[in-house]
Design a protein around this nucleic acid. Structure first.
Lengths: 121, 121, 121, 121
DNA sequence: GTGGTCTAGACCACC
DNA sequence: GTGGTCTAGACCACT
């Protein structure tokens, strides 16, 4: 999973992001059973409660669901996963563009910056 | 100034961003004197302490400086302003690209998303 | 039987409700022999332990009884069935009305809501 | 507030319901400042964390919002309050009717039960 | 053994 | 002083 957290965002939110991205990227297959909360917590080096809270948040988005007394599973509905990916991406792109425009850059300049930054790496 | 704040970032940081961007964008000319903290605070609908803290943070970046018993001024050194802009922009672009790659998108896809999002607006 | 369960109530309780309602509604005749726990469990897509627990709970209400080494039977006493229905219904109606009144609605409004909701469906 | 909790639902959810209903009923006026979490927790006889969780949930529904470092306020937007009431009511009515139909009662019988139960009280 | 809830107490950011 | 987060540890319901 992960065990590096930045200080400018709540840990449980970073957990939410990581898990969400992992599911979106197909690191977990649809219908796959997740490790128990407690194990995930140990792996991430956080308190089980924190991991619990993160998973509950992910569950609200519909990406995972829980079988009582059994465990948590990745949603079998690939549509949900796909739409979650879409939302995630467009949100990031929009935030980026509005930030750039806020700095007074026009669309050409933005595109130029992105291109040059892509070629460098 | 502004008086709309989002809930996911500290208010004083949003103030820092706004002020920084305003200076970078040339809304304040080099050497120009800023309004007193209290007035700025009123305009932003914010506690003077909060505005004070924000200005102090901006001052650390070198974009403004304080004349004791007189007031705050925008730095005359245009180099500082320009380099501040550079830093700001490249940081945003890099963060954006790494986020997109983290989602499994390749460079072409990223460029496509940016272009389509630019044309829409 | 059924194999769709909501997440906000324990599964075994939902089983209890379903079985109770089925008996009350006459889906099972008095004295009729029930299917073995294991089969019922398979039909409901549930762990046999869970079904077992549910049947034990129903048995406590007197609607069914067990013949050791033979199986479970629906009670022949129709009085029990009828009174069980009564209890069930008045409880639901009372809970509903007190909930509506708790929201500040008066009796006329409650009646109106019920009527309109009935006509719609 | 309240200090009586039933055992069949999580306490924090009961808190959510109580607070929601109180706002819907106008017990708190729009824009009114709520008591601090810790005081509310003491009044309800629960752990501050539990109350915190409940308030966070209510906040998600838009009925209240928080000013950082200041306190929580009831939403000024009366439209939100009104629509929240609507949702609440129709949900209760629907659940009630489907429960009654599940018991084999037809619409006339349902209406009769409601009427008789209303006159009794 | 699994997830869900609750308590207790601490620390931090913010105003 | 306010809300927000996190840890620690306990207990319960469910499978």
């Amino acid at each position: 999973m992960a065990w590096n957290f930045s200080n400018d965002k709540p840990i449980f939110q970073q957990l939410v992001d990581i898990i969400t991205v992992d599911i979106i990227n197909g690191k977990y297959s649809p219908g796959e059973k997740l490790l128990p909360v407690r194990e995930l917590a140990v792996m991430a080096g956080v308190n089980p409660n924190t991991m619990q809270r993160a998973l509950a948040a992910v569950e609200e988005s519909g990406l995972i669901y829980t079988k009582r007394g059994d465990g948590r599973y990745v949603s079998e509905d690939e549509g949900i996963v796909k739409s979650a990916l879409q939302e995630y991406v467009v949100k990031i792109v929009r935030d980026f563009i509005s930030a750039m425009k806020g700095l007074g850059l026009d669309e050409n300049q933005i595109l130029t910056f992105v291109k040059s930054s892509l070629n460098q790496e």
